[in-house]
């Protein structure tokens, strides 16, 4: 799989709206970051971004995706129960057979996300292109989404955060989680975990496009959705578990 096939290309509209956002920043310095993000978005309902994780290529020692995620989003990488972890490696062992697997787990970007259903203010939302996000300016920190998420994909910011990536605003008292590197995807780049994987275990693409490399791969190998019994129609699929 070449990088070119995985990369969503920025359109003319994206460039124009990006320029508009930059101009907006110049003329209205007080504007909220989320509004800028809204102005620059290229989300289209025709697209549904998804991810295939081939766990047969993952090894327990390799944490490249986790480290890349932490670096991109300026997470500390600390692993106390109060620290944020947007992407983690879960080591699995089949209770009967003893077969093991090392599985990267992050927000599954469900088509019917429980976190969006329960959020009282609409801060948890799903973009038209299927990416599930938290509007950091509308989150009141009630943590109901964390109670509802079947994947333990969200973290609560328990203390002040420093040294933020301006493209990924975080804040004490708000809930956060994997955003599928929306800021990179909107610029035509790959999510950082996908890019960082040394074993090409992750494939990013458009689930709605039958000709995308992702869709073609999903047609040819056996894949599963985690907790498929819940019927959430996850955007992240796994091979090898």
């Amino acid at each position: 799989m070449s990088d070119k096939e995985q990369k969503p290309l920025p359109g003319r509209r994206a460039l124009l709206s990006g320029g508009a956002a930059a101009l907006g920043l110049l003329v209205a310095p007080g504007i909220r970051l989320i509004e800028v993000a809204g102005a620059s978005t290229t989300a289209s309902p025709k697209v549904r971004w998804g991810l295939l994780v081939d766990t047969t290529r993952c090894t327990p020692e390799c944490k490249a995706c986790v480290n890349a995620c932490n670096a991109e989003n300026h997470l500390s990488g600390a692993t106390a129960p109060t620290d944020s972890q947007w992407l983690r490696k879960v080591e699995l062992k089949d209770k009967r057979t003893g077969r093991t697997a090392s599985v990267p787990v992050m927000c599954q970007h469900c088509a019917k996300p429980a976190c969006v259903d329960v959020c009282p203010t609409g801060a948890s939302f799903k973009r038209a292109d299927g990416i599930v996000l938290v509007d950091r300016h509308a989150c009141i920190g009630c943590r109901y989404c964390m109670m509802a998420c079947p994947y333990k994909a969200r973290s609560f910011v328990h203390a002040e955060v420093h040294d933020q990536n301006p493209e990924v605003p975080r804040g004490k008292g708000c809930v956060e989680g994997c955003n599928l590197c929306v800021h990179r995807v909107d610029k035509g780049q790959l999510p950082t975990c996908v890019e960082a994987c040394p074993n090409q275990a992750m494939l990013f693409g458009d689930l709605n496009d039958p000709n995308s490399a992702l869709s073609q791969r999903l047609r040819t190998i056996a894949t599963t959705q985690v907790r498929a019994d819940l019927g959430l129609d996850t955007g992240v699929r796994y091979h090898g578990i």
Binding site: V90, E91, L92
Partner: peptide, 14 residues
């Protein structure tokens, strides 16, 4: 999250 498996992680899985 993974019924039928023993799970462990840095995030308290299992």
């Amino acid at each position: 999250i993974f019924p039928g498996f023993e799970a462990s992680s840095s995030f308290g899985d299992g």
